[in-house]
Design a protein around this nucleic acid. Structure first.
Lengths: 338, 338
DNA sequence: CTGAAAGCGCTTACAG
DNA sequence: CTGAAAGCGCTTACAG
């Protein structure tokens, strides 16, 4: 078993195993893929074959197996980044749920680049994925089109599309609840009623638009007007958030922020450090998405945790039910008060 | 292109394309896989075939292609978790480097479970990976054995093995430097000279042992004895770190900690909150691994960032050079002073 | 209870 | 410049 790794050597096949065990390739195949009970192969032969396979360090060539079978058990996922708890959690959950179902999960990370998303989708389709979950995709419908052409089911998660089922957070309610919390804390702690500054994300992005709607409604229900210059949506990156905040002058007065993602929060915190300084007693903010360390930062009064297990559970249900019609499932978020 | 996803429909093959384009499957195959220049197929025919493939939404069946070719371009990686910046960064870098080289990266996350690690390795081998990078594996040598039996090259990253090349951080120097920094800060800020408490990780774990060696040496060079009850190595989880700290009574006196990972840090911070309270002016600590939010926590004086790009770059070099002999490459860490 | 044979969709030497 | 044919390693209906 402890041979040198030598890619030139031909791997052991069922023919080798059959020769060694003194039987036929058919028998070996059915024993190793579990269909031998059905074929009423003797336990004796089955045991002998399994032993030989073990001894030879045999591993099935899945390419060959998949080629012959009509269906693969690979499920694919596209994810923008692994660099925050939200997407990291999505990747982990997806793997766990896929394995539970005997499926083989393949995840690919596309750096928020639309071209990479399409390339990755094509690649996964080439690997005969059974279905494809597009998470946080910038153009989910093009991915759905690609999948449809190949007869592959697709589901959108996190950001919705119009051509396949979508499972997303209730960003409106999440945005509204977080805004209410920050406004409450500003009133209680700073004796100041707002309006808050919204920072991070893109206006064209569905989730940002929904959270912004919640943000505006939470202000409106208290009769607070939100000036346009309080809405800073320059993109998700930390740098852009930090730059955008340059237009805000804290000037010693009270300040409240709605931070649209933990990615943006990194820039927000840098801005706080450099402009507001170490004393944040006049500052309160809340942030979308959960991060255990960010939850401990001074001034942070609440984070919105998206319910990843429920979202992915629902996505797998849709796959298993064979649902392909467009339609959006909203999953409530959890507001974690700090 | 916008058909319904229907797994029952047979996918378009090169035979369909050949029929439609009025040519042979061989021609289609070589045009689509790029070997047509070599075969001196006319640009005319090539263009016609490409157009038809596009129109039909054709995607190569990689299983079939791989079965015929002798070599796959899949590279596999095993990673324990996605829930921190270190492993998230490793996953992202691995994907990026693999793509740069025209390889298809498949990552699988094994939850620090030895059995899952072996299962995942077998599975990746079945998919004919060209090589396997085992990151933070609890039993790297068994994975190497499995790979060797299948003629697959393997490399260990993060935790070393004895049967394949390993690329790991210089944990000794990282541990020593971080200890020095925390001791310096304790002296400067608290007028207190130690010894520090080491918390998190397992004594049997290579990286923990090395960091601990650096921890002890940094104390020794200042003539400070480290009592055994100052070494808390109950495992990596936040819960275990928090529980282990129950034996430490801060009692208003100065306290300095060496936290062995950001995972453990979550428990440490919970302990600080509940036992030390909000006033951390008598507490200083440092932590292995980098997290942008953890870097902002009060009391944290430094973090050790492992150099993931260099580590993975080196791993790919080893793969490309065909190196299979055991041997460890140490990559320096970066101490980030806060 | 077991094996011979066809075929999955490609690739590539070989023969024009 | 192009095509017919063999074969990659499996699976599975079919025939004992």
């Amino acid at each position: 078993v402890d041979g040198k790794a030598d890619p030139s050597q031909r791997r052991t096949t069922i023919y080798d195993l059959a020769r060694i065990a003194g039987t036929s390739p058919s028998a070996v195949s059915s024993v190793l893929n579990g269909s031998w009970q059905k074929r009423r192969i003797s336990r004796d032969l089955a045991d002998r074959i399994k032993r030989v396979a073990e001894e030879q360090g045999y591993a099935t060539n899945i390419q060959a197996s998949l080629l012959r079978r009509t269906t693969s058990n690979i499920v694919g996922m596209i994810v923008p980044k692994y660099d925050n708890r939200y997407f990291g959690g999505i990747a982990e959950q997806f793997e766990a749920l896929a394995r539970q179902r005997g499926l083989f999960p393949v995840i690919t990370c596309t750096q928020r680049e639309p071209n990479l998303e399409l390339e990755a989708a094509k690649e996964l389709i080439s690997y005969q994925v059974r279905c494809l979950i597009a998470t946080g995709a910038t153009d989910p419908d093009r991915i759905t089109d690609l999948c449809a052409a190949a007869g592959v089911a697709s589901i959108n998660v996190d950001l919705p599309g119009t051509k396949a089922p979508s499972v997303i957070s209730d960003n409106y309610a999440g945005g509204r609840d977080l805004t209410r919390l920050v406004l409450d804390r500003c009133t209680r702690d700073l004796d100041w009623t707002g309006p808050l500054v919204f920072v991070g994300g893109r206006a064209s992005d569905h989730n940002t638009a929904e959270r912004l709607r919640g943000f505006r409604d939470a202000h409106a229900e208290r009769g607070i007007a939100v000036p346009n210059d309080h809405i800073l949506v320059p993109g998700y990156s930390a740098e852009k958030a930090e730059l955008a905040l340059a237009s805000v002058s804290p000037s010693g007065a009270a300040l409240g922020l709605f931070v649209n993602s933990t990615i943006s929060l990194e820039g927000v915190v840098r801005w706080i450090r450099s402009v507001v300084g170490p004393d944040v007693s006049n500052l309160r903010y809340g942030c979308f998405d959960w991060d255990p360390f960010a939850a401990l930062l001074p001034g942070n009064v609440g984070m919105v945790q998206q319910d990843v297990p429920t979202m992915l559970g629902r996505a797998f249900e849709l796959i298993e039910d064979g649902r392909t019609a467009a339609g959006t499932t909203l999953v409530p978020c959890v507001l974690r008060t700090l």
